[in-house]
Amino acid sequence: MSPKDISRRKFIKNLGGGVVGAGVAIQTLSAKTRKESKPPSKSDSAVALTFTVNKKPITLLVEPESTLADVLRNDLKLTGTKVVCNHGECGACTVLLDGRAVYSCHMLALDAQGKSVTTIEGLMDGEKLHPVQEAFVEHDGLQCGFCTPGQVMAAEAILIKNPKPGKEEIIEGMSGNLCRCAAYPNILKSAVAAAEKLNKS
């Protein structure tokens, strides 16, 4: 028994005596909710998903209704991929699927079956930033940073498609990525600089 459990029990005991937590409604707990429920396990409907994530082959059971963003964030703990709208409207969850930018909140994980997914974590070379990531730091293409992984992946997708994109192509390619801080001028600068940098190297 962990010290935590003991102190929690002590806490509940104290509560009965009115020592602490007068605002708490613990006494109304039903018998059912008080007991520990089973740890989460996949249901009978779970399906095997085999795909490649950041160059590593992975097989796991997923619920058919799980989105790719859910599986990346919750099952694989790749929380660099953000969920902002959860409706395919903002691009924060952008990852690469076989080198193409997709909204991972807006596709089923099972649609990645047999495919290759790259997330923001996968752009790194160990601890070293990818040139696109470096450009976003250098040109301050972010403020709060929450949409940034999606912005970086969108920029990378443009560069995979065309290593020498024009400014208009970058603007068009990144128009699906919202930034509420509206750091757009520097996001654009970062993406343009990343393209230049990659072409030099």
Binding site: R73, K77, L78, T79, G80, T81, K82, V83, T119, I120, E121, M124, L129, Q133, E134, F136, V137, E138, D140, L142, G145, F146, T148, P149, V152
Partner: peptide, 21 residues
């Protein structure tokens, strides 16, 4: 001056409240 938290934010390693598990 570049943000000192820039690395965390562009690498996806910045843990936001939303990400805590």
């Amino acid at each position: 001056v570049s943000r000192i938290d820039g690395y965390d934010k562009v690498s996806g390693t910045a843990v936001y409240t939303f990400d805590i598990n």
